[in-house]
Amino acid sequence: MHIIVCISNVPDTTTKVKFSSENTSFDDSGVQWIINPWDELALTRAMELKEDTSNAVSNVTVVTVGPAGAEPTLRKALAIGADDAIRVDSETGDAHFVAAQLASVIKNGEFDVILCGIESSDYNGSAVGGMVSEMLDIPSVSAISGLRIDNGEVLITRDIDGGREEVSVPAPFVGVVQKGIAKEPRIAAMRGIMMARKKPLQVVPVVEAEKLTTYQEYVMPEPKAPCKMIEADNVKELVNLLQNEAKVL
């Protein structure tokens, strides 16, 4: 079984968000780039599955669509344990464009399990995974909080309103993962970092693809009014304010 994890290269989640050129582009000066948190969990789970040899996972590949500046993030994924990496050499575009690049890479390989995150933490697109599956005309399962392999059968736990389901799905398929898929993201060890330098990282050119959307402008949220402080021995006043001022009780 061969797993591919789609990695979105995103600003560290504590980044102070700023925009430039009249709010038409994200200002990435001084930004630390990381593996999108859900993709990191997906990769962690893929490594766990590979390590248990009974699962017969032969290979874990990581792929990103992005410029050369995204390579340190791919190297980090290799350091965590991925066997090889692919970078589609492109500025990231809209979700449809990115998904088409990924679909092309996946079509050219032999992948059984394609893992994506539920969203990129920067643009919150929640789009690419589902789009890839539709382009490849293969099944997709979303909201995945657990994934195991039992005698070659892939068994998925997915969250539904008020509960969870266990689902089986034939390979190849796209799994869109969220929290729970792995407990903690795996951190690269020194040995992994050393080994990552020698692992294959292939750069492939873009394929022609349409963009269906574009980000026109960014808007910062309205600054909010300062918090009203209430003395700890005056809880009654809090209840009064919630009832009569905020009118939420």
Partner: peptide, 11 residues
């Protein structure tokens, strides 16, 4: 976008 830290106008 950015988990609520900003909004974007999508065309």
């Amino acid at each position: 976008v950015f988990s609520g830290k900003a909004f974007a106008k999508v065309k």
